[in-house]
Design a binder for these strands. Structure first.
Lengths: 222, 222
DNA sequence: TCTAGTTTCTGACACTATGTCAGAGTCACC
DNA sequence: GGTGACTCTGACATAGTGTCAGAAACTAGA
């Protein structure tokens, strides 16, 4: 019975994942508000009531996707950073990576966007909320590490002082940037700014704030 | 009847404003999703059906508040810019002003946040959407002007080239920043970063990207 | 193989909110 | 005081959420 209990547990976990899969699929073709739990249930080939057995409500399900998004993003960050030599280049690549990530996985970006724009008071966070928190911290840790590498190799000004503050600033910046670039694409084009050029321009602008004050030229990339 | 028609028109406009007032009031104590049209109607001392006569739906009502928010923000921007001498100082002040604005008028910031995070495709924009668009452009125009002043007075690097791109970049940055600072306050404190220090740090970081490449010190404020 | 117990799952329900509409109420003008 | 235009409302249809009693499926001991 030890054995079957274990299997039951695994099956339950699979069910959970399957429901999250379904939710992702549904969110790919409708936004959060118009997404219907009925639809999620249908895609997961399960009754709607069961979904509520696994997730307290829509938000909770959304948070579960959020965890996936953050873990995936972290992996992209790690890979991207590894492809560059200097800390400066690594950090810059993270910005571009997030932008590309948002383009490639719009559902994930939307989920993160929702998370960022809703208060996270969490006097007593649910286990899902804790998981989001942890996954988020893991993402920021990558940025912090790249910043520190840059400060050590001289490609980023050493008086940055608070790498975590810088990391969270950059996160906020790029997140806001993508939000505009994505949702106001039409507007940007109307005022004669191609979205891609816009994001490149913005990343360049903010990266200047990281350069050593002595050398005003961009540190060479790798 | 020319006269009474005029009066009718004005009364209608007042009703509309009164409903928006009510909506603002309701949103002050509940977020968008949990805000109930019934509640708005009750506060406006009107039947729910009437609200739907003035506004197609909740979103439309939200957009109407958005217009107010942007107009108010523009005024704050203008006032703030006027209190500073150099273009650089003006631009920096806009950042701090937006942050303060968000703190003072959380409902307005929430409304703007909602607007920024929903696609604005507008193949055929409603009149309210057009008004938002226009009010938004007016805000960005202030930033552009400050940037141009800075480029002329030498406090901002002259090779900025596209002041509108820069203005929209800054907008995106600061907006993202406030979102984090507001909604993740708890998180920031938990990792030992007071929100105010965080926003100051971030503004300083991004402002460095505007400084003339020759002079590495911050241009003096006014 | 039967059965009792546990876990997983569902149909049906209560509830709540949205958006609509026929028509009641109000007012200016004739 | 009748008429048309405009303002407003009660009541309804619709639709989605979250819950719960109990059905179904499975496990394991007798």
């Amino acid at each position: 019975m030890e054995r079957s209990q274990q299997r039951r547990h695994e099956e339950k976990e699979q069910r959970r994942e399957a429901i999250i899969d379904a939710a992702e699929q549904v969110l790919a073709t409708s936004d959060f508000d118009s997404a219907r739990m009925e639809e999620v249930a249908k895609v997961a080939r399960v009754s709607r009531a069961l979904v509520y057995l696994y997730f307290k409500n829509k938000q909770e399900l959304d948070l579960a996707i959020c965890v996936r998004a953050l873990r995936a993003l972290r992996q992209h960050f790690v890979d991207s950073a590894a492809r560059h030599a200097t800390g400066y280049a690594k950090v810059a690549s993270l910005g571009h990576t997030y932008i590309q990530f948002a383009k490639d996985f719009p559902v994930y970006f939307a989920v993160l966007s929702r998370f960022e724009s809703h208060p996270f008071d969490t006097l007593e966070p649910s286990s899902t909320e804790l998981a989001v928190f942890e996954a988020g911290s893991a993402v920021h840790a990558v940025t912090v590490e790249c910043l520190q590498i840059g400060m050590r190799d001289g490609s980023i000004r050493a008086d940055l002082e608070q790498p975590l503050s810088a990391a969270l600033s950059l996160w906020a910046f790029v997140h806001g940037l993508i939000q505009i670039a994505h949702n106001k694409q039409h507007f940007l084009e109307q005022v004669g700014i191609p979205p891609t050029q816009y994001t490149d321009y913005a990343i360049d602008l903010v990266m200047r704030g990281l350069r050593p004050v002595a050398g005003t030229r961009a540190p060479s990339d790798a």
